[in-house]
Write a protein that binds this DNA or RNA. Sequence first.
DNA 1: TCTTGACTCTCCCGTGGGGGGAGGGTTTGA
DNA 2: TCAAACCCTCCCCCCACGGGAGAGTCAAGA
Lengths: 268, 268
Amino acid sequence: MFAIGEFARLAGVSVKTLRYWDEQGLLKPARTDAATGYRKYGAAQLSRLNRILVLKELGFALSQIEKLLEDGVSAAEMQGMLRLRRAEQEDRLREENLRLRAIEQRISDISREGEGLDVVLKETAPGYVVRVKDRLESYEEIARLYPLVYGQLGMRAAAGIPIAVWHCGAEQKDEIVGEAGVVLEEAVAVAAPVECVALPVVHCASLVHRGSFEQFAGVYNRFSRWIEEAGLEINGPCRELYLKIGNPVRGDDESYVTEMQIPVEKRA
Amino acid sequence: MFAIGEFARLAGVSVKTLRYWDEQGLLKPARTDAATGYRKYGAAQLSRLNRILVLKELGFALSQIEKLLEDGVSAAEMQGMLRLRRAEQEDRLREENLRLRAIEQRISDISREGEGLDVVLKETAPGYVVRVKDRLESYEEIARLYPLVYGQLGMRAAAGIPIAVWHCGAEQKDEIVGEAGVVLEEAVAVAAPVECVALPVVHCASLVHRGSFEQFAGVYNRFSRWIEEAGLEINGPCRELYLKIGNPVRGDDESYVTEMQIPVEKRA
DNA sequence: TCTTGACTCTCCCGTGGGGGGAGGGTTTGA
DNA sequence: TCAAACCCTCCCCCCACGGGAGAGTCAAGA
């Protein structure tokens, strides 16, 4: 019979841990003195303790270990749990690997550019867009389309966020097709050429840019390089959400806030 | 200005998270209504939020992120933090990899043997051993040595754990050199041929065996195979701690409990 | 037999990053 | 004017213990 401290030293675990395992019913002492509460462990319990340690190192939670230690768990069932655990562990390993590569990407990004690009991967929020779509000669020409949208929406436009969607990917090489619109939470009825459609929810890379439109070309440049380096691939039209629009007359360019969303998927 | 719910949807985080970050001082709303407590977020805060998300994905804790977001953190300092973080991440990755391999080892162990071997890696507990060392013709012959130890220790032997140490590794191929002893917490004075020396603390693989000595050969077989497969290498004399000794007359072999310790290191 | 110091007990709080829910106030559109 | 949708704070929960307070217990030496 060993006192808790002896047993802990023998096994290489802390006294606190043994008390916790007792409380959780994972490893009860061989005897507990009813009067003093002192725990006494028997040598034979060391094998159970060691099995617990092994299962912990394999990454099982204490509650799972408790089940695995129950009598009546066959070798086949144990195998099943282990295979499940292996799949989880493989996922974790992949994640940790991605994380490491993300860290390295950011280190090299800072080395090159002086600071990192805050690109976040996420799903776009669901919603409806009231928009006009047209072929354009230049990007600036999109300004021509917004009055049509605002003309039909009137007051209701205030509740939405202005958006531009650019179809300038691989499909349309030489021409610029743009949509000017406003994102709303619910659909509304509008007349041609304005349409109201559900904005597809897509997995995208998102970047928030603060500053005027003149810097967009440079930002897109870095952004697409970032996507390339992250092992991703553009798979849809880019969106620009104009979250805040400054007053150009006063020249407070810094008060422009635009979220750029580029739909992406993992490169095959 | 966005209400908390809107802002959360926009950013793809939960309302709870935004409130928590506010409480932690990580991301304060642009305005908080003093009367109602309602939080209002500005579009410009989305870039800070995204930076937080990026740093979180890189594995930084919120407290570290708070420091990294302070003004006055230069690109060089950020680089330093990232390199530190990379080192941590590499360690984690190694650990997760080891864990995965341990899971796979156990799966194959069960497939082959019907059940896994509960081998635990640990440091041996510190202590002193009162022992006699000698060359033996057979393993059983060690029984001859114990009376010398017990003769000198007398009553004090009851406080210790009987141990055998086997020098049968690569150094001594053809001969068996064994030590019979008792492990005590403190040194005592003894006369030759009995000695009292500190038991070196070593990193070892430990296995608790329940059953009589006749099964030892088989257990050692599996044990050393396990060590081999785990990518380890034996680098010292093996120890056997007799934690509980059954009554051979009654034949209750199952009440023998022996801990086998094999000093190991990573194979180069 | 007494003391002393090592050991042990239970109970409570803290960790990190929020999630879940109760109970109550606020806003907004119809 | 009323209901639905939002928002607030406050409190408990997760996991696997660690730290410490305050009190009781045990074994060896004087």
